[in-house]
Amino acid sequence: MIDELKVVRAGFAPIKGTRHLAHDRVVLDERGVVGDRGFALVSVDPEHPGSGRVLRTVQHPSLVAVRAEPAGRRLEVELPDGATASAEPVATSERITCDYWGRQVDLELLEAPHAALFSRWLGRPVRLARARRGDVVFAGAVSVVTTASLHDLARRVGDDALAAARFRPNLVVETDEPYAEDTWLGREVRVGSARLRIGVPIPRCAVIDIHPETGERDVRLLKTLASHRPLNRAGEPAFGVFAEVVAPGVVG
């Protein structure tokens, strides 16, 4: 029997690390939310042009201050200072193998004005790259957090306005019991016209301590989570769950 979950927020970021934005409608295919982290920013090793690193939000928190949105084939980017870029990224013949949290991912470097914009904002040269669907996304295809768990954490840190965007979830679903999602492993659920199979808990890092719009560190959510939530072998507390798409569909 498939249970239906009510989705109260759906969102993604087309460029990994940029602001996580809510969307009225998202499409789920067999690899997750279409458009989610399809692009990444990379620093190229000048001594080894075929290798480099995917920029991580935890090391470059100012990325979350940047708005990026798909507009058909175009990618629209806006910096907090008002500078913008809107263009369709153009494929090149250049490919790069990047390290991403210990995994090697193969990326296609792109020609686009967005790279200059990000390079100025970050104070270092970066390139815009495109990943194969699923390559830069870490672990499960879809990330899910629940309203009751968010409310419990908000109470613990004394912040009634705690934003779900801090956790960059693809889906926020309505629940009555905090951390009920811990018991959903292997369960199939319906969201919109799609079906998901719930997977393992999501380990959290210091990214959740930064404001989801400014990138400034303003709370100690990670420490609070670690005080009452299960920890993995790396000492990371769990919050939310990953899920795989069993049947593609639309939410919203």
Rank of each mutant, 00 (worst) to 15 (best):
P80M: 07
E108A: 13
R53L: 15
G199F: 01
G102W: 06
L21W: 02
G72W: 10
L63P: 07
R204M: 03
V126T: 02
L75H: 08
E244Y: 03
D24P: 06
K16N: 10
G158H: 13
E78P: 05
V90P: 00
P80F: 06
E188F: 00
V246M: 04
Q59D: 15
H151S: 15
V26E: 08
E244K: 06
L110N: 04
K223H: 13
E69K: 14
V157N: 09
S93L: 14
V27G: 00
A154M: 10
P230W: 12
L117F: 07
R74S: 14
L109K: 09
P212M: 07
G50P: 09
G38I: 12
D81R: 03
A83L: 12
L117Y: 09
D160S: 08
G72K: 05
L128Q: 09
E174N: 00
E88Y: 05
F239D: 05
G52Y: 03
P169T: 05
A71R: 15
D218Q: 01
G134V: 02
S119Q: 02
G140Y: 06
D209G: 02
W184Q: 04
G17W: 05
T183P: 00
R233S: 14
G158W: 10
D106L: 02
E174Q: 13
V33F: 02
A247Q: 15
I210F: 15
L221Q: 03
P80Q: 11
H48T: 10
D99G: 15
G252F: 09
R168D: 06
V145D: 03
D209A: 07
R220A: 15
A131I: 01
L171E: 06
G192V: 09
R195C: 12
D3W: 03
V44C: 09
V189P: 11
L79H: 11
V26N: 04
L117W: 11
H60W: 13
G50Y: 09
P46L: 05
L153E: 03
W184T: 05
P237S: 02
V44Q: 13
G17M: 06
L107A: 03
S51Y: 04
D106S: 14
S149N: 10
P237N: 04
G72Y: 11
P89I: 02
A87R: 07
R156M: 04
E244S: 15
V105K: 10
A83Q: 14
E181S: 10
E177I: 14
T92R: 11
R168H: 08
A141T: 14
F118Q: 10
A131P: 07
G249Q: 09
E69W: 00
R19M: 15
V189D: 09
H23F: 09
A116W: 00
H228G: 14
R217E: 14
G158V: 08
H23K: 05
R166C: 03
D81W: 07
D24Q: 12
H23L: 01
V33L: 08
V105Q: 04
P201Y: 08
A116G: 15
T183N: 10
G102T: 12
R95P: 00
V33H: 01
I198F: 11
A234T: 12
V245W: 00
R53A: 13
K6R: 14
P203N: 05
D182F: 06
V145A: 13
V172I: 09
R53W: 14
R74G: 01
T214Q: 08
P201M: 10
E47Y: 00
E108F: 00
P125F: 00
R67Y: 00
